[in-house]
């Protein structure tokens, strides 16, 4: 069996759902949290400290019967910008998505400035990505920049 094929088998151990691969090992529980996977009712497989050529140690999450929406994908990209999403249907890999940090982020992030209007009124947050490495966002409203990302509850 080729190495390629063996790899595919490892990641396609679920019949339908999504695999999030290449998560930095130390961020894996953050990904679980932001996606609320601890509340998820179907199978979730979490692997961490797996060896990876790219990362040294990586994490992997397999979520059965789950296909992520754009806002969720954006959330993952903010925590694990180099992760890969693998969509599986009937044990087959139907799509591989290499994540990218978007230029703009709407809704999912909370502004760190307590005096920001978005923390006072019901306003959809909106950030521009001013730096990707390390990640730095600027609030479109109060114009504060932040490197410490907090997600909306």
């Amino acid at each position: 069996m080729s190495n390629e094929r063996k790899k595919e088998l490892v990641v396609s151990a679920i019949d339908n759902g999504t695999v999030i691969d290449h998560i930095p090992a130390n961020e894996i529980y953050k990904v679980v949290k932001i996606l609320n996977l601890d509340q998820y009712n179907d199978e979730v497989l979490i692997g961490t400290n797996l060896s990876s050529k790219k990362f040294g140690k990586k994490g992997i999450i397999k979520v059965k019967n789950k296909f992520f929406e754009e806002t969720e994908v954006n959330k993952i990209s903010l925590v694990a910008p180099n992760a890969t999403l693998i969509v599986i249907k009937d044990y087959e890999v139907v799509e591989k998505i290499q994540l990218n940090i978007p230029q703009e982020i709407k809704k999912i992030v909370k502004c760190i400035n307590p005096n920001c209007i978005t923390n006072i009124e019901e306003i959809e947050t909106y950030f521009k990505v001013v730096d990707k490495e390390p990640l730095k966002l600027q609030c479109h409203y109060c114009e504060k920049t932040m490197t410490n990302i907090r997600f909306e509850e």
């Binding site: 400035n113 209007i117 978005t118 009124e121 609030c139 114009e143």
Partner: peptide, 10 residues
């Protein structure tokens, strides 16, 4: 004029 940051943009 508003006491909150970002109120004018909004």
């Amino acid at each position: 004029r508003h006491p909150r940051d970002g109120a004018a943009r909004y």
